[in-house]
């Protein structure tokens, strides 16, 4: 598998605009790296969560840059819902080699087998709720005291008030009323035994920032993000991929369309968008012109207006 990052030839002095100007991406990159290093320094056993989505790919790339020529001083962890696209899994293993990182995988499937959780019924069984249990179990299994996540504040209203360092009680719960004020760039990661924190280094990035950064850094993404022909079904205004975990139900018709994904999560609830964008430049243009938020394509957020807030309180990201 060819890579474009392995290129070590360009080590000359960076071109710098006159007057020491720094653009948005430089500022956001530096801020995210600062937060990732704070986590590495302040915690005994941090972990970085990896979903295979573009945000966690960017976050792990930032971790790579933060410590280079050293290796990332903590493991990454993937909570596999068992409903992932095959390509996500293949990409994950390839990407870990590129960034020389170590990955731990824990699966919802196992949690179901162990009777920790029970699968939802109905035509649209989502494992998003279930993965919270698997995640919390994994955190305590490895005694992780801080989990880095790729959440962004622009994704959803409840996240607009999230901190960089988000405090969770002994039950992994997020209490919006019990968050620590964050001043300047001073992040307080102190905690008592049993408590842990979540840290969100790309809090201040927007979807467009992420795509522009991917373009600038020439990061390779799974093909799912680019246009491809796929069997889909339209359900409640959301385009869902047809696959082993998701079949058309009564009255729904399967069709073939040119689609791509704006986010990649569980196959059962990640909506695709019709798009012909085949390059990063196409995608950046498409995002800049788009009129629907990326979570608008996620069936799980549509369940109620405060859906995200409720899931967060239970320990979801």
């Amino acid at each position: 598998m060819a890579t474009t990052h392995g290129d070590t030839t360009s080590t000359g002095p960076r071109e710098r605009a006159a007057g020491y100007q720094r653009n948005t991406l430089d500022i956001l990159e530096s801020e995210a790296i600062f937060v990732i290093r704070e986590v590495a320094a302040q915690f005994e056993r941090p972990v970085m969560l990896f979903s295979g989505g573009k945000d966690s790919i960017v976050m792990s790339w930032l971790a790579r840059k933060a410590f280079y020529p050293g290796r990332i001083p903590f493991p990454l962890m993937h909570i596999d819902t068992g409903h992932n696209f095959d390509e996500t899994i293949r990409y994950r293993d390839w990407w870990m080699e590129q960034i020389e990182a170590r990955i731990i995988v824990r699966s919802v499937e196992d949690s179901i087998k162990q009777g920790r959780v029970k699968e939802e019924d109905g035509p649209n069984p989502s494992r998003n709720g279930l993965q919270t249990v698997t995640l919390l179990d994994a955190l305590s299994e490895f005694k992780f005291d801080c989990a880095l996540g790729g959440a962004r504040r622009d994704e959803e209203k409840a996240r607009a008030k999230e901190r960089f360092f988000s405090f969770r009680d002994r039950f992994g719960r997020w209490d919006p009323k019990n968050q620590r004020p964050e001043l300047w760039n001073l992040y307080n990661g102190m905690k008592r035994p049993g408590e842990h924190l979540r840290a969100f280094p790309i809090s201040n990035w927007t979807e467009l920032d992420v795509w522009q950064y991917i373009q600038r850094e020439e990061i390779e993404l799974p093909n799912l993000y680019y246009t491809h022909e796929r069997e889909i079904v339209r359900r409640d205004g959301v385009i869902l991929a047809i696959g082993p975990y998701n079949q058309p139900v009564d009255g729904e018709a399967a069709e073939t369309a040119w689609v791509r994904f704006r986010t990649i999560g569980d196959m059962t609830c990640t909506g695709a968008t019709e798009s012909r964008a085949s390059s990063l430049a196409d995608i950046v243009n498409e995002i800049a012109a788009t009129r629907v938020t990326e979570r608008g394509g996620r069936a799980d957020d549509k369940r109620s207006e405060a859906a995200m807030e409720d899931r967060k309180k239970q320990g979801y990201f």
Partner: peptide
Amino acid sequence: MGKARANDTTPTTLVKE
């Protein structure tokens, strides 16, 4: 795995700086 598809000539609408 797909390449970073950045090296084509489609212009980007937003000012980068």
